[in-house]
Write a protein that binds this DNA or RNA. Structure first.
Lengths: 337, 337
DNA sequence: TTGAAAGCGCTAACAG
DNA sequence: CTGTTAGCGCTTTCAA
């Protein structure tokens, strides 16, 4: 009942190990008959190739590493589906690593990848990531890497993002057109380009509408629900409180709804709300949430496809390229008609 | 700039490979000084151990496989967090595999595990899984396996579940007490014990309340949102339509809300709704959704802990045991006060 | 306490 | 088309 190896198959079939190995990998230099014999014996004896041995030999693992900050988030969960779809189709395995927004964890994970554990990586950096040495090191070792969503611009590789700037601009503009004068921007990081692009979109929209930009209206959330909640609540208590909010991350929407409820502020009458969000629940919220919905599945799929192509070429270099997949602006009832 | 190996460290230090190997794994048979020297050189040269080589040698991979039907689901996403928390702490890596509710995929994945790619597995079966040969095969090869949430009772190992029967009973009873007479049960599988337990809870609650059980009220959803939507909508159009619904899976709640909206049925006035759900959005829905919230994180954590313990013991056998972590019944406004 | 050598299971030249 | 052989990088007896 124990593990059966190529060697055993070979003995059983009175063939050499290499013949069996080649037959199994369907090499052209093996006759159809032997291939058949080998495969029959393999299934008969229930042979399962040892992945580590072949990886050691060939130097590649047929697995890709996906490094993301969090999995309880519709965007990342959907992106995983996209990644997985193309990986599985190409015979690749997927290892998912969570940084929990922690830079040290991200470093540890990428460091481990240097051993060749994965053939390539798909990365969406943590909110704390500013240093890039760990990424450069990995790429220098010949491990191709593609960014998605949360990218580092300084690193020369392909980056899959969505039109963050435009969507933030559009959303902010929408809020202004619907009458907002004091719009809050909820940021999840003051370090990441994605966050700053969204912030810039917000700022420029205000500017173009002749509204003064106030740093007091830019809230840097701490990834700590309780503190963030209090921060926001205090902000909404002020005499001339905000009348619009743009959230840069899905989960912030809950914080907003909660705070408004606590303060008896009506959405959208008192405060209008828009959030970057892929939540399926958005349509069923009270009120239905106006969202910027990112093409999560597509982004994952595209990132994985680019990586697979590089892997197929056996070249670790990946073109420095920005692929921007547009998000959808879905107007619902958390903003006025 | 290329991969550096133990051999290179050895040469550099004028030591043998084995000494270096032992030093790195902190073996007691190596002197403190050499350990120090080795470690210094290792970090200096930026040595990263080759995971495949060590796995080939030792026969274990220090990684666990997590097989789940879906990742865009709060329950599974949260469970992953629980699993990951304990795995990382114990120095294990986590590979996540999605079956997308497809039995064949599940089989392929477990088959691949027979090669020793993972040291142990955490499994939540697909909605189609009735045969168990693939699981038995894997376990026979000495790969320990722990079930969580969607278990197979016939297989002798530890199973982490929640009190599905009681919660379904409680929820159904609640609906009856609040005046429902025609309660729909939305099932995601007629094969899985978890689904049947929930169904039994529903049935027994009806029975205990003297309400006739009708097969017409048990809807077997097909994992196809559109069809499921139409099925439900038709059901809600009937002259003596249902006045209560119990959904056995989070995403069904959306189908319900959507159908009610389309038919202009008010929740909870016309139809009262309860769903098994871990959605954070539940409180913010319109109306807020009464839920049965499973201890997802805890379940993942417990499953992983049990597995880690077995792995530490180097024994692949895991006690046949049922660990039941209670869910919370959270009453909100989708049921009457 | 350190070293030599065999081997984990498979792949990949190179010969035959 | 098939076989021989030498590794891949690390672990692990067994000697020294």
């Amino acid at each position: 009942m124990n593990k059966i190896t190529i060697k055993m198959l070979a003995k059983e079939l009175r063939l050499s190990v290499s013949t069996v190995s080649k037959a199994i990998s369907d090499s052209h230099e093996i006759s159809p008959q032997t291939k058949l014999r080998v495969n029959e014996m393999a299934t008969k004896l229930n042979y399962v190739p040892n992945h580590f041995a072949s990886s050691l030999g060939t130097g590649n693992s047929k697995t890709i590493g996906v490094v993301i900050p969090e999995v309880v988030d519709s965007f990342f969960a959907q992106a995983i589906n996209g990644i997985e779809a193309v990986a599985v189709e190409k015979g690749y395995h997927v290892m998912i690593y969570l940084t929990h927004e922690n830079f040290e964890k991200e470093k540890t994970i990428l460091k481990d990848f240097e051993s060749g554990r994965v053939d390539g990586v798909l990365l969406s950096v943590s909110r704390e990531t500013t240093k890039t040495a760990h990424i450069n090191e990995l790429m220098k070792k010949g491990v191709p890497l593609v960014f998605f969503d949360r990218v580092i611009n300084e690193i020369a590789t392909t980056k899959i993002t969505t039109n963050d700037y435009e969507m933030a601009y559009k959303a902010t503009n929408h809020l202004v057109k619907k009458g907002c004068q004091q719009i809050l921007f909820l940021s999840f990081s003051n370090l990441l380009s994605i966050s700053n692009k969204r912030l810039d979109g917000y700022k420029n929209a205000l500017q173009d509408n002749g509204i003064e930009i106030s740093d007091l209206n830019i809230l840097h959330f701490k990834n700590d629900p309780k503190k963030d909640y209090l921060l926001l609540k205090n902000k909404l208590k002020l005499p001339n409180r905000a009348d619009g909010i743009l959230a840069s991350v899905e989960k912030f929407a809950f914080t907003i709804y909660q705070a408004c409820e606590a303060l008896q502020l009506s959405i959208p009458t008192d405060v209008q709300v828009i959030s970057f969000s892929n939540l399926e629940a958005a349509s069923f919220m009270n009120p239905p949430l106006t969202t910027i919905a990112q093409p999560a599945f597509e982004m994952g799929k595209t990132a994985a496809t680019i990586l697979m192509k590089a892997l197929a070429r056996k070249k670790s270099e990946i073109a420095e390229e920005d692929i921007i997949l547009p998000s959808a602006f879905v107007v619902r009832k958390s903003t006025r008609v």
